[in-house]
Amino acid sequence: MIEREITQRVSLTAENGGLNHAALGWTRTPLHDTSGIPGRGQWGRNKRWEYWSVMTPKHIIALTVSCIDYLSLHSVWVYDRATGEAIDTTVLSPGGRSATLPASLGDGPARARTKKVTLDIDEIDGGTRLRGTTPRVSFDIIADRPAGHESLGVVVPWRRGGSTRRFQYTVKDAARPAHGTLTVDGTALNVPEGSWAVLDHGRGRWPYQVWWNWASGSGIVDGRVIGLQLGSKWTDGSGATENAVVVDGTLSKISEELVWDYDSSDWMKPWHIHGKRADLTFTPFYNKHSRTNVLVISTRTDQLFGTWSGWVLDSTDERVSVDGIEGFAEDVLNRW
């Protein structure tokens, strides 16, 4: 596949509110102006969110601020890796009043304000500050952005009948060193060195039903910081992929639709993701399984957390080992 690298600021949407075809491509740093989302005339199809996952040696933390036009969804999830206890607080509220989301990534804060969940995501010098409170959990975590650190931005078009009315802009930012404090049931816990944060930033107009795979990994291998970013199904046939590897902050785009082999009857079996430029095995240790069925919304998520092994070719065709880094791989079916 040949994918175009974008190196200058560009608007995601055209003057008529549809997709700006000059925005098709990928970036190493966020360059897309997404202020045209939600826009008029497309109510119900606009999806905006900020999702962060933080893996520490003892806990996994996930937080979401999102608005999908007719409702907002905000959540905080914490998993204790020693005890296996998971604490999930998710709030659905009508419309978008409980959500504050920046027009474009980095243009302002993201906030959620409900009785059970409060979230604040703020860009600061050298990183992003993540804060949240629920009845049992609170946290204040910094996801560092080292100098020169690159992330993958991609515009994915869905074509039907020769038109492109549905499209998505995503930024996937792996291997962000994290530190701070997590408090569970009044006990303060350190988020120590060796913790990693991953961002999924999304702005777009979606079809009602979408099936996707997403996978990520972060860690240190042979003294180098490795960030792994993979995706499938929702990008198939679009001319775009969301596959990349980041080594010491430098991103290499993987312009290949990789093959995902896994057993949906036994999610805990090792996953094999492979192609000409990658041969990867993901070994899960926990499945975050969830289902939602509320009015017009139905979701099924199996997000597996585990350990990566194998290799990826970077842009110089050097084999990059990912042996031992941790992360997740997921299979999601959404009707929304």
Score class of each variant (00 low, 15 high):
W26G: 03
D263G: 04
F328M: 13
I68M: 13
V312Y: 12
R176C: 14
P94S: 08
A110H: 05
T316D: 15
K115C: 01
I61D: 04
A99H: 04
V198Q: 07
S104M: 05
W77K: 14
L92H: 05
K172Y: 12
L228R: 02
N334D: 08
V117D: 08
E50H: 13
W26N: 02
T83F: 05
L333N: 04
L31G: 12
R4A: 11
M268E: 04
I2K: 09
T29Q: 14
A147T: 11
R165S: 07
T64A: 11
R81D: 06
E85L: 03
I2M: 08
D222A: 11
W26A: 01
T307D: 14
G180S: 09
F282N: 01
W212S: 04
S232W: 13
A14T: 07
R335S: 12
L313R: 06
W267I: 03
H32S: 03
R45E: 06
D185G: 05
H21A: 08
V332M: 06
W271T: 02
S53W: 13
G162K: 13
T7N: 06
E242V: 04
W271F: 12
G223V: 05
Q229Y: 13
G153F: 09
T316P: 12
W26L: 01
E123W: 04
V137Y: 05
R97P: 01
G327F: 12
S309K: 06
H274I: 00
I325P: 14
A86I: 08
W52G: 00
G223S: 02
G237S: 03
P102G: 02
Q168N: 15
D69P: 02
E3L: 02
V65C: 07
W43D: 13
T283K: 07
A22M: 11
N16V: 02
T128G: 02
S195K: 00
L12F: 10
L101K: 05
D331W: 11
G84R: 03
W260T: 03
D263R: 05
R9D: 02
K115G: 00
Q42Y: 15
V171W: 10
F167H: 07
S98V: 00
K116T: 03
G223Q: 09
T181W: 12
Y208E: 15
N293M: 10
E85D: 14
G18A: 03
V191Q: 07
S216I: 01
F328A: 08
V332L: 14
L73T: 07
R129E: 15
T114E: 09
S265C: 06
I2V: 04
I226Q: 11
D120K: 00
I226C: 10
I121A: 00
I87G: 10
I6N: 07
N190A: 12
T307I: 11
A147R: 02
Q8A: 08
M1C: 13
F285K: 01
D88E: 07
R45L: 11
K115R: 14
R28K: 10
F305E: 15
G148Y: 13
T89I: 06
G194H: 12
D69M: 04
V54H: 00
V76W: 10
V332Y: 14
L31S: 10
K288G: 00
E85W: 00
D173A: 12
S53Q: 11
R136F: 05
P135C: 01
I60E: 15
